[in-house]
Simulated assay, not measured.
Amino acid sequence: MSWRMPAETARHDRTWMAFPAEGQTLGETAAEREEGYATWTAVAHAVAEFEPVSMLVDPRELPRARRMLSGSIEIVEAPVDEFWMRDSGPTFVVDDERPGVLGAVDWIFNGWGAPDWAEWRLAGEHGSIVAGAVGAELVSSVLVNEGGGIHVDGEGTVLLTETVQLDPRRNPFADRARVEAEMLRTIGASKAVWLPRGLTRDYDDFGTNGHVDIVATIVSPGRLLLHDQQDPEHPDHAVTRDLRALLSAQTDAAGRRFEIIDLPAPATLRDEEGFVDWSYVNHLVTNDGVVACGFGEEKADAAARAILEDVYPGRRVVTVDARPLFARGGGIHCITQQQPSL
């Protein structure tokens, strides 16, 4: 078998999500919980403008989900605790030697390094549940990894972060060679490009320890979109400057030097918790569209849409307010997972 993870820009059969379930992530107050439900629902409806959406829904949340979600969204009943589908769900792959065969890589999910606060034991089954629902071949992996920790070009290149795949809370016995061998076996990546770290806020207690999908993405072979924090008062100004220097010297699986396109951060620097990690890089590419994060900043949101329209020609870009997502630890890309067409 020769599994390969297609680029996110390839055609999709659908996008998978998980409906929020009550718990720490959703919020402690009624207002916080309602905000969470509403935001996940808004993202689902935005994605559904472009392609089908299937939603895992915990039995406890079925009445609410049926009330809030449009009839176009498929509800799949399944146990849910954490509901970041990019991370708990499978990574879909295809086999170019067997047309028509869909694979689903079932990474081990331990709640981003098994922190005390995370509820992830139910979510750890989402990979196999989704694979079973679509009849995909399950590709088991012993690597603790999340879909938000990788980005690919579909042609053999994968972006990784040293503080994620080599995190001792995830993979205490892994080294680069072992991780790279597993990336080749499971998603067909022959060239790994390692980032030394992610954005500053992502190292807080409720962070992922450096997911790449909030920092950089491959928009097309040889072209990288990179988060650009332009304000020197923000610690990510130095982080993104150093990442740009590192990535500009890297090559992809075909030996191409990367062209780097800067995607400026919004103007807001802080919230009540400290420096924000608000990033337009954390968008979802859909069939004929892009669902982008918005941050209530008209000028910055519009500038980001313009850049995304330029790098994804022919796709319509829509914005959903992602501040409630980032307040809970992620963005639009983090709560969605594309299923490629065969």
Rank of each mutant, 00 (worst) to 15 (best):
Pro264Ser: 02
Ser128Leu: 11
Trp84Val: 03
Val139Pro: 02
Leu26Arg: 05
Ala133Val: 04
Arg66Phe: 00
Asp87Ala: 00
Gly274Tyr: 02
Leu226Gly: 10
Gly314Phe: 12
Phe326Met: 12
Leu199Pro: 00
Val219Gly: 08
Ser54Arg: 12
Val215Asp: 06
Gly210Val: 03
Leu225Ala: 08
Arg316Cys: 01
Asn110Phe: 10
Asp213Gln: 08
Asp204Gln: 14
Val105Lys: 05
Val179His: 06
Arg241Ile: 02
Val57Trp: 07
Arg323His: 08
Gly124Asp: 08
Gln229Phe: 13
Arg323Met: 04
Asn145Ser: 14
Arg244Thr: 03
Asp301Val: 07
Ala245Arg: 14
Asn287Tyr: 02
Asp231Thr: 06
Gly331Lys: 01
Glu137Asn: 09
Gly103Ile: 02
Glu155Val: 04
Ala249Glu: 15
Arg4Gln: 12
Glu51Ser: 07
His333Lys: 01
Trp112Ser: 10
Asp310Val: 11
Gln338Cys: 08
Pro324Val: 10
Ile335Lys: 05
Glu272Ile: 11
Arg256Ala: 14
Gly148Leu: 02
Thr9Tyr: 14
Arg64Asp: 00
Gly89Leu: 00
Ser220Ile: 00
Ala267Trp: 05
Arg86Asn: 01
Pro90Cys: 13
Val219Ile: 06
Pro196Lys: 13
Val76Ala: 03
Gly329Ser: 06
Gln250Pro: 05
Leu62Met: 15
Tyr37Gly: 04
Glu77Arg: 13
Gly113Ser: 09
Phe326Trp: 13
Arg170His: 05
Val276Leu: 11
Glu77Asp: 07
His234Val: 09
Ala306Gly: 06
Val318Gly: 11
Val105Gly: 09
Ala238Pro: 00
Pro172Gln: 14
Val80Cys: 01
Glu49Val: 02
Gly274Thr: 11
His237Cys: 04
Ala238Asp: 10
Thr163Gly: 01
Ala181Ser: 15
Thr200His: 15
Gly329Glu: 02
Ala46Leu: 02
Ala38Tyr: 04
Ala78Met: 05
Ala189Phe: 11
Met183Arg: 10
Ala18Ile: 03
Ile129Gly: 00
Ala31Ile: 01
Leu143Phe: 03
Leu325Pro: 10
Arg305Ser: 12
Ala44Cys: 10
Glu22Ala: 12
Ala42Cys: 11
Glu8Gly: 05
Arg241Ala: 12
His237Gln: 06
Gln165Leu: 12
Leu243Gln: 11
Lys299Gln: 10
Glu35Ser: 15
Thr217Phe: 04
Leu143Glu: 00
Ala181Asn: 08
Thr186Met: 03
Arg316Leu: 01
Arg244Ile: 00
Leu325Arg: 09
Pro52Tyr: 13
Asp167Phe: 05
Leu342Glu: 07
Ala327Asp: 14
Ile187Gln: 06
